[in-house]
Design a protein around this nucleic acid. Structure first.
Lengths: 104, 104
DNA sequence: ACAGTATTTGGCTATTTTGCCAAATAGGCA
DNA sequence: TGCCTATTTGGCAAAATAGCCAAATACTGT
């Protein structure tokens, strides 16, 4: 693996790492339907608002969502809907795992 | 978010976490072409063989790859090729980010 | 300017992840 | 059996991540 390839995989991993936390996956899933502000997402998730804000910052930093301040609130939007296809694949893996469990 | 939903996102995150390390993404990408044994992958990656072995164990535990012992070696295979579609999406995000950088 | 709401940031601790080394395990072959 | 190669496991220290609280910031409306 040369230096260029190494950097490529580090970049891919950086993006995917942003998507490897339950709360952040939930956020992405929700934002796929419509935009939400921090407070709304916080109420759905049920942890501290500062925690949710940090999750949102991670997703934003990865370029997966964007924010827009309107009035008193900051609204977040999903930038790459293709991220949803990843849910399909992950669900696939989980289903396969279950099947294999049953075969034992 | 009720208990069932919470568990669902935890499961999704668990799988995706297995895919959020550069070496593990590299491994998946390589195994998409053909099977490889631990030693071969170790030579490509360039870290300690025990480290690579642990990466493989994580991927196997997530149900993404499977192993088969033949003779002296353990060969690993990609189980869910759909994982490759995730690369496409991640690359997409990276490209979008670059474009946005250029717009500044 | 002041009070109230929404959000972010800093700081701290607890937990998890990473990666190396050394040791244990397993199979092949003389 | 004994040696060699391939792989996994245990243990450890460094680094990264998570989540809470408190404080800072930003904007609204009075």
């Amino acid at each position: 693996m040369d230096e260029l390839e190494r950097r490529k995989y580090e970049e891919l991993a950086r993006i995917n790492k942003a998507l490897s936390h339950p709360a952040r996956l939930f956020i992405v899933h929700k934002l796929a339907e419509q935009e939400y502000c921090v407070k709304e997402l916080t109420e759905m998730i049920g942890s501290d608002i500062s925690t949710v804000s940090k999750h949102l910052a991670i997703l934003k930093n990865a370029g997966i969502i964007s924010d827009e301040k309107r009035g008193n609130c900051v609204y977040y939007t999903l930038l790459c809907p293709c991220v949803l296809s990843m849910f399909g694949c992950l669900t696939n893996v989980i289903e396969s795992n279950k099947e294999q469990m049953n075969e034992l």
